[in-house]
């Protein structure tokens, strides 16, 4: 490959070893004074960090949710309006579900954003897929938040 002359780090045999299982990837561009303002932030780094922090919290929140809803006390059999009313009578479970809703939606939306960036090659395709994604994620967060805060056990 002609790239060997420009990327000396990757043509050495020792480029891959157990501590570096993937080839070294040179930064695609250096950040200079001419770099557009839009790409001068650390947005992607904060996104990367958010995926890990929210991921750890979601392991606890989602696995706890699955345990209560699908495993304990007869599994899915018990679920109904009365069961939901019983749980949301407690601010603790309201807060649990609210935090889980926000973190899961943002975590999932950022994951799908990465996937769209990876596979949609045309600018317009990326734009529309992301517009659809952000609309769906915003709708999910707003609807879910409203439902938790306005829940009325005596609706009938």
């Amino acid at each position: 490959m002609s790239a060997e002359t420009t990327t000396p780090a990757t043509d050495a045999v020792s480029a891959y070893d157990v501590d570096h299982p993937a080839p070294v990837i040179e930064p695609p561009r250096a950040r200079t004074r001419k770099t557009p303002r839009a790409t001068r932030t650390n947005f992607e780094m904060y996104g990367w960090l958010f995926m890990r922090l929210s991921g750890v919290l979601l392991v606890v929140l989602v696995l706890g949710h699955l345990l209560i809803q699908l495993v304990l006390d007869g599994g899915v059999t018990k679920i109904g309006f009365a069961f939901v009313a019983g749980r949301w009578a407690s601010p603790f479970w309201q807060a649990w579900d609210l935090i889980m809703l926000w973190l899961a939606t943002l975590h999932g939306a950022n994951g799908l954003r990465t996937i769209i960036n990876d596979y949609a090659e045309r600018d317009n395709t990326r734009l529309w897929l992301k517009a659809l994604l952000y609309t769906a994620a915003g709708f999910t967060i707003v609807l879910g938040t409203l439902v938790i805060f306005t829940f009325d056990p005596n609706i009938r």
């Binding site: 939901v84 809703l101 999910t140 609807l143 409203l146 439902v147 829940f151 009325d152």
Partner: peptide
């Protein structure tokens, strides 16, 4: 989230 929001319907 859509199916759960039906608790606000009836």
């Amino acid at each position: 989230v859509l199916d759960t929001s039906l608790v606000r319907v009836s």
